[in-house]
Design a binder for these strands. Structure first.
Length: 649
RNA sequence: GACGAAUUAGCUCAGUUGGUCAGAGCACGUGAUUUGUAAUCUCGGGGUCCCCAGUUCGAAUCUGGGAUUCGGCUCCA
């Protein structure tokens, strides 16, 4: 007698060993149709695997992440089977599930290459294989047998993987004519998979290491219903419309020019306006938090970066030094602002009473990113950090750290960023050689970060071994329209630069002490932040931020003079206003300006000119009635004030 | 940087087998119209078909090299 405990703690009894599928069936036929895998005592199993003894179980369907993973994992095997059918002799790397689907890394024989044209035939083959309703069978094998099997297939990649596994834990899965090394779990058979889309193809290094061979990675996604695939594809198309590169072009925010160079963005007037609003906003917040703005040059003597250690670490792989007419003189385009700020700190002796010193700069830096890494505004070669460095005493560290978290919260709130994640990056205690500074200091810094996050109620993930070589850090990440994650705000604790630059303060004990440095950039960089902001808002920026807040639409050219008068009035009232005085019908002007995402459309004709009013239309909403010009100024000013209320005043 | 794909008017894109294929819509200019809440009509100008070589009687189209962009990989101070 076997007792199976269900999630609601009810118990079902079976006379003999039972499979997950049989359990589902015993509950209801409709459940049996949709269940995909089963958790047995916390471990996810195949539905077709026999449960031999008492267990607690949970059944997974498409609505559970675990169910989807089972589904996609089996899909990856069918992809592999299809590839093996067309390209016998292919070596198979790994084929895991990802957030949206799965991929398989393969090495085709005889230097054959896959290209996007081949995806369709692979999809067709996969559908054919899925429809064969082949059982997916699990085998437990010895390491020796597993090695032999893949040796026969000449699959070096699998051999390498098996070599690292422990004997007695190795399982194979077979469906149709294809056998794969795999921990599972899998679907009972292939017929569950009804809709298949291979989405893209890309190169990927074996085991993620640049020194290894580059394999071909095929990405795909599958669904239990055709309709779900259609819906997914629509969603992807919608997401593409939010791409900041597309909207940035449409809204005339920024551009690139081959003549200027790769990865060197140029801000167009409206983009510059947007950026200025963001900068002014942060400056106000920083003023409240006791920061001082500074301005430093775009270049620095190469020896400055030798002192900081950056030259040694990155000099060869970045922009090369600028020479001067003087022999032996070399300058570097600055890859960061910290060394300059350290020099400012040293300008004058500091007392413990002077700390913390908070030094902020919108500093443009230049980094020679590899060409394949450049990506719109999110990854560029010249960018402006909303940088600041806080020099503080050890007893101030945690408090300063918390204040920086506050600033980041203010920004995320002002822009309604809610779906961010926060990651604490700590050192790898097993590799002390990777880091500089005493382990005592590291402990203190790490503890300060963890405590600061806890006290701020910030939910974080922790990554061991991800710290910078000079200190632990807290990063804020946010996803773009297509689900790619970007690091925005960052706070880093640094014991290294104060050492290298010999920064000091005189303590109450009249001795010299070393300050701790905090690097922080709440936006990360203006470029990346604006990119993510565009995708977040689909270009419909909040009123306080948007480059053009109102556009005046004269009904006909006869009212252009009045429109100009209103626009002048609004502009001196600090409302960013433009006039659409083209010789077009009003319907046309409304359409064009709605599409330009300007929040307020002000229609003026005979009535309005006579009564000194405007007819107000909210973008995407519609007619808001008629207001006097003064009323409109109050109306819009109030809206801006409400958006920013309590954030920095 | 390595792998794959792409690049045609300011933008979005069509262009079949190498031969009236230099195209469309939008944008822009022009004339008419003087417009009341999501596209008025007329006429017109605009191209180094990414660049450089090559094959060919003939290249947007084929081949080689380069540039840039895109995808994921590696990287990210």
């Amino acid at each position: 007698m076997i007792q199976i405990t269900l999630p609601d703690n009810s118990i079902k009894e079976f006379a003999e060993a039972v499979t997950g599928y049989e359990i589902a069936k015993s509950i209801s036929n409709s459940l049996a149709k949709v269940v995909l895998s089963i958790s047995v005592n916390g471990e996810v199993w195949d539905l077709s695997r026999k449960i031999e003894s008492d267990a607690s179980i949970k059944l997974y369907t498409w609505d559970n992440r675990e169910g989807q993973e089972t589904f996609w994992h089996s899909s990856a095997h069918i992809l592999a089977e299809a590839i093996e059918f067309y390209y016998p002799g292919t070596q198979f790397g790994i084929g895991p599930t990802i957030d949206n689907g799965f991929y398989y890394d393969v090495d085709l024989p005889d230097g054959k290459v896959l290209s996007e044209k081949d995806l369709q035939k692979l999809e067709q083959k996969m559908l054919e294989l899925a429809r064969q309703k082949n059982e997916i069978v699990r085998y437990e094998v010895s390491k020796a047998d597993a090695l032999n099997l893949f040796k026969e297939k000449n699959d070096d990649l699998k051999e390498e993987l098996i070599g690292e596994l422990e004997d007695g834990t190795i399982t194979l899965y077979k469906q149709g004519s294809f056998t794969d090394l795999c921990r599972g779990p899998h679907l009972p058979n292939t017929s569950y998979i009804k809709a298949i889309k291979l989405t893209s193809i890309a190169g990927a290094y074996w085991r993620g290491d640049e020194k290894n061979k580059m394999l071909t990675r095929v990405y795909g996604i599958t669904f239990p219903k055709q309709k779900m695939l259609q819906e997914y594809l629509v969603l992807v198309e919608e997401a593409k419309k939010r791409d900041h590169r597309k909207i940035g072009k449409e809204m005339e925010l920024f551009m690139f020019s081959e003549a200027v160079g790769q990865g060197l963005p140029m801000w167009l007037p409206k983009g510059a306006q947007l950026r200025e609003q963001l900068e002014n906003f942060l400056k106000k917040v920083q003023k409240k938090y006791g920061y001082d703005q500074v301005i430093t040059p775009h270049i620095g003597d190469v020896n400055l970066y030798k002192t900081s250690g950056h030259y040694e670490k990155y000099g060869k792989d970045s922009f090369q030094p600028i020479l001067t007419p003087s022999e032996g003189e070399e300058y570097l385009l600055k890859p960061m602002n910290c060394p300059h700020h350290c020099e400012i700190y040293k300008w004058k002796p500091k007392s413990y009473k002077d700390l913390p010193v908070r030094m902020a700069e919108f500093g443009t830096v230049y980094r020679y990113e590899q060409s394949g890494e450049l990506h719109g505004l999110t990854r560029v070669r010249s960018f402006t950090q909303d940088d600041a460095h806080i020099f503080c005493r050890p007893d101030q560290l945690k408090d300063e750290f918390k204040k920086v978290i506050d600033i980041i919260f203010i920004i995320f709130k002002a822009l309604s960023f809610e779906n961010y994640t926060a990651q604490i990056s700590l050192r790898d205690p097993n590799k002390p050689e990777k880091y500089i500074g005493s382990s005592e200091n590291w402990d203190k810094a790490e503890q300060a970060i963890v405590e600061a996050c806890e006290e701020k109620g910030l939910e974080t993930t922790t990554e061991v071994g991800e710290a910078a070589f000079y200190g632990p850090k807290l990063d804020f990440m946010i996803k773009d329209a297509l689900g790619r994650s970007w690091q925005l705000g960052t706070i880093q604790v640094d014991y290294n630069l104060p050492e290298r630059f010999n920064l000091e303060y005189i303590g109450a004990d009249d001795n010299r002490h070393r300050p701790i440095m905090i690097h922080r950039a709440p936006f990360g960089s203006m470029e990346r932040f604006v990119a993510v902001l565009i995708e977040h808002t689909a270009g419909k920026f909040p009123l306080w931020l948007t480059p053009e807040q109102a556009v005046i639409l004269p009904i006909s050219e006869k009212y252009n003079d009045y429109a100009k008068k209103v626009s002048d009035f609004l502009n001196i009232s600090d409302i960013r206003t433009v006039v659409d005085n083209r010789n077009e019908k009003i319907g046309r002007k409304i359409r064009d300006n709605e599409l330009k995402r300007i929040p307020y459309l002000l229609i003026v004709g005979e009535k309005e000119a006579e009564s000194e009013t405007v007819s107000v239309r909210r973008q995407g909403v519609g007619d808001k009635g008629t207001m006097t010009n003064n009323e409109f100024v109050d109306f819009i000013t109030k809206e801006v004030r409400e958006q920013l209320s309590g954030l920095y005043n």
